[in-house]
Amino acid sequence: MLKNQNPKITIYDVASEADVSLATVSRVLNYPEKVKPETRERVLDAINRLGYRPNAIARGLASRKSTTVALIVPDTSRASVAEMINGVADIARKYDYSVLLKVTNSEEDTEREVWQEVLASQVDGILYLNDEITDENIKQVESAMVPVVLCNTKDDLNRAPSVSIDFEESFYRATKTFVEKGKKDILLVSTRRAYSVNAMKERGFTRAMDEAGLEPKIIRTSGRISVNYDYFTDYLNENKPEAAIVVRDSIAVSFINAASNLGINVPEELEVLGFQNTKASKMSRPTLSSIDNPIYDIGAVSMRLLTKLMNEEAIDDTNVVLPHNIVWRNSTK
């Protein structure tokens, strides 16, 4: 029995008092047998001294039958994120899982707070989407104390389970296609922010251009239309590439609009290829050719992989690479 229970004391206070992570406190509350005896005793002593009283949900976790999975994403406004959530939700529904959605807005401080909230919620597993996987992100994954799967992204060193396509290979093959069509002045349009997935795409592009003995031209701009449209207009006033491969469909549409308003005919004078094959690719004029990233399948397979990890099932490969293809539309010949 806890002495002097104080409802104002939180799990954060317990973690600080015991000098352990939130995940460790959660594990002591729910899976004490998996915590080292000395650490477990330190946490229990802190709980008793502070009079910490877990909420009703936390008290029932040890005996509950339901499973809760957290889905951490940077932004819900992206069409690709929405499609991935659909894939996750459909599989979660089959297993009767509850899904806790958390949005980080790609801000470092916010993301750290979101991870703390998720771990304090004592979820059974985490699905994590972030275009930029850093060493700090991997530390968060490794210290989570519950299974974590990277969705539609990956760590270059395969330090965490993941489900994605081969980003480097997709851009390598796309670039090779333009080279084989006789294009020599090929441009890669990437982002100013150094997302790790875009670095992989740039590597694939550069490799294909180097193999062909061509100069790999890369420009980087903002994902915001209010910024990149003017940048593209200035660039195309001075440069006339034969083809452009763009790291995101929405940016590719902005690139096409800038070219069209300058009187550059797409695709006769300039061919444009996007990435993701989102709704934006079908709504642009001309319609946008795009590397099809099977985002719904990525969400569904990620949820299946996380389920296996939570159930401690045997898994042949924790880094799943799904196939991709190119959907050709009217922005290319």
Score class of each variant (00 low, 15 high):
P161I: 06
S162M: 12
S162R: 04
S162E: 09
S162Q: 06
V163G: 11
V163L: 07
V163R: 06
V163C: 12
V163F: 00
S164E: 10
S164D: 15
S164R: 03
S164N: 15
S164T: 12
I165C: 08
I165E: 07
I165G: 09
I165S: 12
I165A: 10
D166V: 00
D166L: 02
D166P: 00
D166W: 02
D166C: 11
D166R: 06
F167P: 13
F167D: 15
E168K: 09
E168D: 07
E168I: 00
E168Q: 15
E169F: 02
E169W: 07
E169N: 10
E169Y: 02
E169I: 03
E169G: 03
E169A: 05
E169R: 08
E169C: 06
E169V: 11
S170F: 03
S170D: 03
S170K: 01
F171Y: 08
F171T: 13
F171W: 04
F171M: 15
F171R: 13
F171S: 15
F171L: 13
F171P: 12
Y172I: 02
Y172D: 06
Y172G: 03
Y172H: 14
R173E: 11
R173C: 00
R173Q: 15
R173V: 12
R173M: 08
R173A: 14
R173P: 01
A174M: 05
T175H: 03
T175G: 09
T175L: 03
T175Q: 00
T175W: 04
T175M: 09
K176W: 07
K176E: 14
T177N: 11
T177F: 07
T177Y: 11
F178N: 02
F178L: 14
F178K: 10
F178A: 08
F178I: 05
V179R: 09
V179S: 04
E180D: 14
E180G: 04
E180I: 01
E180P: 05
E180N: 10
K181L: 11
K181D: 14
K181R: 15
K181V: 02
K181H: 07
K181M: 05
G182C: 02
G182I: 06
G182Q: 06
G182R: 03
G182T: 04
G182S: 09
G182M: 05
G182Y: 01
K183N: 08
K183H: 06
K183A: 00
K184S: 14
K184H: 10
K184Y: 04
D185F: 04
D185C: 01
D185T: 00
I186A: 03
I186Y: 00
I186R: 07
I186C: 01
I186V: 08
L187V: 10
L187H: 10
L187S: 13
L187R: 14
L187Q: 15
L187M: 08
L187C: 05
L188M: 15
L188P: 04
L188H: 11
L188V: 14
V189Q: 04
V189I: 15
V189H: 05
V189P: 03
S190P: 09
S190L: 06
S190D: 12
S190W: 11
T191V: 01
T191C: 00
T191W: 00
T191G: 09
T191F: 06
R192L: 15
R192P: 02
R192H: 08
R192S: 11
R192K: 12
R193F: 14
R193Y: 10
R193D: 14
R193S: 13
A194E: 13
A194H: 07
Y195R: 13
Y195L: 09
Y195D: 13
